[in-house]
Amino acid sequence: MKNLLLALFCAASLSAASPEVTQYIETLQSKAALADPAFEGFDAKRGEAVFTSEHLGKKGKTIACTSCHTVNLASKGENYFTGKVIEPLAPSANSLRLTSAKEVEKWLRRNFNDVYNREGTAKEKGDVLIYIMTK
């Protein structure tokens, strides 16, 4: 029963992502579980911390995901370095978000490198995606 509820909850929250992105999140889930046997699933609260915390980025400047995307994911952001406008990240405000696994993978790879100066772990990537989906 508990499992069924969990599955239903996952299905509901995953509806903010396309089937291929949902599948990508499932692969992240397997990887995260493999890396840590105590892993109990992705968490939006942890994802928020991933998204809002500041780090010494690739350029040697202290930045966070919010430096470009702002703290309001439903609003437009601006590239911290070039000033180029970034469309909202929240699927509720931008229906194109979380529709292509290829795009999601590309931006997670790049932006973790830019902000954290390293590749994100499967757990961090999953957490931040779940967080974005709640927006």
Binding site: K58, K59, G60, F81, K102, K106, R109, R110, N111, N113, D114
Partner: peptide, 12 residues
């Protein structure tokens, strides 16, 4: 592209 003016701009 992985270090494109200090930014990761890599592609497939």
């Amino acid at each position: 592209l992985d270090d494109h003016f200090g930014v990761d701009a890599s592609l497939t």
